[in-house]
Design a binder for these strands. Structure first.
Lengths: 99, 99
DNA sequence: ACATCCTATGAATAACAATTCATATGAAAT
DNA sequence: ATTTCATATGAATTGTTATTCATAGGATGT
């Protein structure tokens, strides 16, 4: 099952785990265990998320020995995040955006 | 409860109903009943969605008699959608992105 | 004040996605 | 071929979000 709609694409940003993975990969590519360690989460949890992110081409993978190294598709993702940052700055902080 | 995180913001795009509302408002501002009719959905369903969209400043409202007219915050939303369109075009269509 | 139209809201339920846990797979080394 | 390390996967469960239904509230006209 591939990412087949805009909704599917956006779901990857609408979940804390997946969003944090994206944030971690902004700086450098990482293996599954590296991510799990950095985020202090279970490996399988990370793997499930990575699977969906990759299906939407938000991430790419390369095999390196036993490891699988995930990288962010920066072309798409960075500009989107920047736009949202700008939006939040403008509309949210001002009004103290708290739950 | 305001939109207080990137995840919250993205949740509005990750749901069919909310996403369709956004699409409908790309062209013109509409009242609740207009949207409900155009989308062939229940009024309360639309209202619940409008509420969340508005809390994240993705939409704005104005009162016009008995009606409440909702408009899209185009500054933020249009560019984001365009980026995702480009992404889907590039990575998805090519490979036949089906479920 | 009352009736009507339009919209919002709360609570219950239904639908869906995320997490967990156990286990399978795959690569490399011995 | 077997062991080890790294990751993936399936199924069950938990957690969250969406939808529905009934009703309340707000604006306008009479």
């Amino acid at each position: 099952m591939k990412c087949s709609s805009y909704e599917d694409f956006f779901k990857n940003f609408a979940n804390k785990t997946k969003f944090l993975i994206i944030m971690h990969l902004k700086n450098r590519k990482m293996s599954v265990n590296e991510l799990a360690a950095a985020m202090n989460e279970e490996q399988s949890k990370i793997s499930h998320s990575l699977s969906k992110l990759t299906k939407c081409n938000i991430l790419t993978v390369e095999q390196k020995g036993k490891q699988r190294i995930y990288s962010l598709n920066k072309d798409t993702v960075i500009p989107i995040i920047q736009l949202v940052e700008k939006h939040v700055e403008k509309y949210c902080d001002k009004q103290g955006c708290h739950k």
